[in-house]
Each structure stands twice: as C-alpha cells, then as structure tokens.
Amino acid sequence: MSIWEYANPKKFITSTERVLPALWAASALCIGVGLIWGFFFTGDEARQGATVKIIYLHVPAAMLAINTWVMMLVTSLVWLVRRHHVSALAARAAAPVGMVMTLIALATGAIWGQPMWGTWWAWDPRLTSFLILFLFYLGYIALWEAIEDPDTAADLTSFLCLVGSVFALLSRYAVNFWNQGLHQGASIFRAEAVIGTDTEEKVSNIFFYPLMLCIVGFVLLFVALVLYRTGTEIRARRIKALMARERVAA
C-alpha cells in the first residue's frame, strides 16, 4: 500500500468521492461552530474592540494563501520527477483556490485595517507580499489556460511554479527590506503569544480556540475543494483524451 497508488486517476476519483461528503460536512461544521463561537460568545478585545473578530476569516485565509502555493510547488515537483498526471492536475486545481484565499486575506485585511490603521491599504511589506503573491497566482493560472497541449501545459506551469517560488521568496525579502511596516508579526503559533508572556502581540486564549477551529475548518474546506476540483480536472482531461482518440481513429 503506497501513496502513489492514488496517482492512478481512476483510483483517485473513486477514493476521494468516498471521503468528500465527510470532508464537506466536517469543514462546514468547524467553520460554522468556530464563527458562531467567535462572533457571539467571545468578548471584545481591549484595544481593538469588536473589529478583532475578523481574524476568524483573515488568519485562516492568509495561512492557506501561502500554503496553497507550497502545495502547488510540491505537486509540481512530483509531476516533474515522477510524471503522475494527477499531481499536475492537483496543482492546477489548487491555484484558483489559493488565489481566492489571497483575495479574501487582502479584502478582510483592508476591512480590518480601515478602523485600526485608518486606511484601507498601506504599502506595508506583508500586504505588499500578498499582493505580489496574487500576481504570481494570476500568471500561473493564465499560463495553464493559454496552452493547448495538456502535458506541455503541465510541464511549463511546473517550471513556472518552481522558478516563481524562488522569486516569490526573494520578493518577500525585498519588500521587507524596502519598507518596514504597520502589520503585527504572525503571532498565532508563537509560544510566547499563546501563553501570553509576549503581552504586546498576544492572541489571548478566548480568541485562540475559536480561531483554531476556523483554521481547521478552512484547511478541511481547502482539501475538499482541491480534491473535488482535481476530480473535475481529471474528467476534463479524460474527455479531451477520448476526443483525441476519436480523431486519431477516424
């Protein structure tokens, strides 16, 4: 029993179809409970008031925005090395999800930033990097759409993802250097922030548990979306292959 068995498209579709309903349900449950808990059963934060509650959307979306790209990088590498079609298609399926997550992170950030910083947008390094990440998603998706031959498209987008990852990291460093910003550090998983020794930037426990629930929910939602979309891509590929077969046979 190896993980590569699921690289067979047929096996992939049949097995994911079995777990998908559970995934949808679990993610809806986590996000629903997390949001209701977070919005209605936790107090307002001392300095930020009720505005802080947007973290239940902002933080999970931002985490997924970055990690989706990492996932695409891994699946692209798997495609380039092992030539499993499902892997390349999973990267293709994940890209729009990652792009939407980036958009959600940017939009919720703007809505949060308006009352807190007094502006919808600032050229803060974190915000700028997310905007740049959005541009990378845009280019990646556009390249997939532009190329006719599926294998060529998979190869070229994989290379773009590979090279793009290096340049995205460089951009992240570059914008940090270019402008020190307003945004607080990512404080969710810093031990001091959680236990509360770092009083400046701590995320207190009341907010922490519903937030964790939302993060888990978003991750489950992401997995479900990617599996579902990969299944769709596989079927589209199959149709394309069958049509090509017809043409050859004719």
Binding site: P9, H85, I234, R238, K240, A241, R245
Partner: peptide, 15 residues
C-alpha cells in the same frame, strides 16, 4: 499505424 488504446483502460495517461 498505432492502434487506439483500449477505451476501458483508464490509467495515468488517461487513455
């Protein structure tokens, strides 16, 4: 001329 691959055989190559 290559024979078209069997239609049931649905593997990594989609054909």
């Amino acid at each position: 001329k290559a024979k078209p691959p069997a239609i049931e055989d649905f593997d990594g190559g989609f054909l």
